[in-house]
Design a binder for these strands. Structure first.
Length: 482
RNA sequence: CGGGAUGUAGCGCAGCCUGGCUAGCGCACCUGCAUGGGGUGCAGGGUGUCGGAGGUUCAAAUCCUCUCAUCCCGACCA
């Protein structure tokens, strides 16, 4: 048991921060609400970027970069958009020693400036679609910062596409939602529910918002990614118009979609345990660490280390990357060296001592189960590969089981209130809902914070609304959220 | 941003109410010896602008004001 980490069930928030500190993922910056992403955390982000970026390119998108500063007047053009984002915008009013004629907003999201550019690039139906993604930072001056989950500045990707038809834009919205779902499940081992957001939770300026929702270790929901159908709202105010095949003027249909460094917080809160970080192998910067062990420093340096380095090289070749390391912290005792990697979430520990050398075997230990296995050095690469894949699957299954066992069907308001009451089980409540946004607000009030996380797209069932009693309501997921 | 709590060495804390020698304790850290396969044992040693800025006072960790950060509860959000 880790001595430097508050147990999960004692205080989840403190546990979360302790894990991040112990794993050296991030630190507080000297700027309010901002964080420094340390190398261990940034390595995870690089892997997350890699898997998403590949999927974006496979679906025909290209990367570009738009400016950090947005003219204030751009933000004001779309009424909903400015209303939603104005309270959390940071604004640059001075530069070069004097006051600017027009203030610049530090981008909280880039629909406006990208819309402006698209209006200049789109003239004919032949110019569409535009499928652009940007990896960047954005700034939202949130009131209550939490590392990775909600910081004033964060890293993300924002995809912005423009299409000739409504259908095509809708297809894009769903396609990217599906890309998110698939990567979160397959690469991050995060089981997610996905579907439309309620009107209350919609992106400011969107016609429809869709999201992927994951359950964290404290049974709260995390919105892990969003995909927006923006209709023609931004196209109209930024004049993204073109001549269609009939020579008529038409406005484009646009979408936007994003995932952020918040996903790192999601990984921590989904897979972590009381010893610290647990990382799914596919996004772990270090997938395995080989630890030479001997009481005799001569044997350690002259015999074990070269053999360990050789194994490390072979494993890196087999796994296709620099993701296996030899631990050379010989000044530490074996227990400390084990613990060091354990707290950082390294999926596999490979113990290599004199016993192993003499028998031609090594001992591999999984981070999530602590199970030890003796493996012949000859078949190490195959076994490591296999074990990492098994662990990836197991982490997903474990998280899925956790979500399932904390999800209940709720038929009426009494049950809903009870479910979310301090003594209630909490988690995801599946309930039919056909009420108004005000009704949803009322539910939020009486449950102490539960909102509709999404209306799962793969759930076609209909039933009696939990609030109004109206029949034919769609099934929704209520939960308290980050 | 509103209500409550907290902030003293890397981490966890005592001291504050009732101001006063040189600010303590545990773990961690450093040195030595013995150890070494999930956080070693013994001996010796170092470490603080008491979160920050003002103020009251002969004297402030302690009292007052402001500020910053964290935790819990609300409002806002990726």
């Amino acid at each position: 048991m880790a001595r430097n980490i508050t147990p999960k069930d004692k205080n989840f928030s403190e546990w979360y921060l302790d894990v991040i500190r112990a794993a050296e993922l991030a630190d507080y910056a000297p700027v309010r609400g901002c964080m420094v992403v340390r190398p261990n955390g940034y390595g995870i982000w690089e892997n997350i970027q890699a898997v998403f970026d590949r999927a974006f390119k496979e679906t025909g998108h290209v990367n570009a970069y738009f400016p950090l500063l947005i003219p204030n007047s751009f933000m004001e053009r779309e009424a909903q958009h400015v209303e939603g984002f104005a309270p959390e915008c940071a604004v640059v009013t001075h530069a070069g020693g004097s006051e600017l004629e027009e203030p610049y907003v530090i981008r909280p999201t880039s629909e406006t400036v990208i819309g402006h550019m698209y209006s200049q690039w789109v003239h004919s139906w032949r110019d569409l679609p535009i499928l652009i993604n940007q990896w960047c930072n954005v700034m939202r001056w949130e009131k209550r910062p939490r590392l990775f989950l909600r910081t004033s500045e964060f890293l993300w990707q924002e995809g912005h596409t423009a299409h000739a038809t409504r259908e095509e834009a809708f297809d894009e919205t769903f396609k990217m939602l599906d890309v998110y779902r698939r990567i979160m499940q397959e690469e991050l081992a995060l089981p997610v529910l996905y579907g439309e957001k309620s009107e209350n939770e919609r992106f400011p300026g969107a016609d429809n918002t869709y999201s992927c929702e994951a359950m964290m270790g404290d049974k709260k929901a995390l919105q892990a990614g969003t995909s927006h159908f923006l209709g023609q709202n931004f196209a109209r105010v930024f004049d993204i118009s073109f001549q269609d095949k009939n020579g008529e003027k038409a406005y484009a249909w646009t979408t936007s979609w994003g995932v952020s460094t918040r996903l790192i917080g999601g990984l921590v809160m989904t897979h972590g345990d009381d010893d610290g970080l647990v990382l799914p192998p596919r996004v772990a910067p270090v997938k395995a660490v080989i630890i030479p062990i001997s009481g005799d420093e001569g044997i350690l340096r002259d015999k074990l280390e070269p053999a360990a380095d050789k194994m490390t090289g072979e494993l890196n070749a087999a796994l296709g990357g620099i993701c296996v390391k030899t631990d050379k912290q010989y000044h530490m005792r074996p227990g400390d060296r084990f613990f060091h990697h354990l707290q950082r979430g390294v999926p596999l520990r490979i113990e290599f001592g004199e016993r192993e050398r003499d028998s031609g075997r090594v001992t591999i230990v999984r981070r999530d189960t602590s199970k030890k296995e003796s493996v012949s050095m000859d078949s190490l690469a195959g076994t490591v590969k296999e074990t990492l894949e098994t662990m990836q699957k197991d982490l997903y299954e474990k998280a899925l089981d956790f979500r399932e066992s904390n999800t209940r069907d709720v038929g009426n308001m009494e049950e809903l209130k009870e479910f979310f009451s301090p003594d209630g089980p909490g988690g995801f409540a599946r309930a039919y809902f056909a009420g108004s946004p005000e009704d949803e607000g009322e539910i939020k009030y009486v449950t102490g914070g539960a909102t509709i996380r999404c209306i799962p797209m793969d759930d076609e069932s209909r039933g009696k609304c939990v609030y109004t009693g109206k029949p034919g309501a769609r099934r929704t997921i209520f939960a308290k959220a980050y």
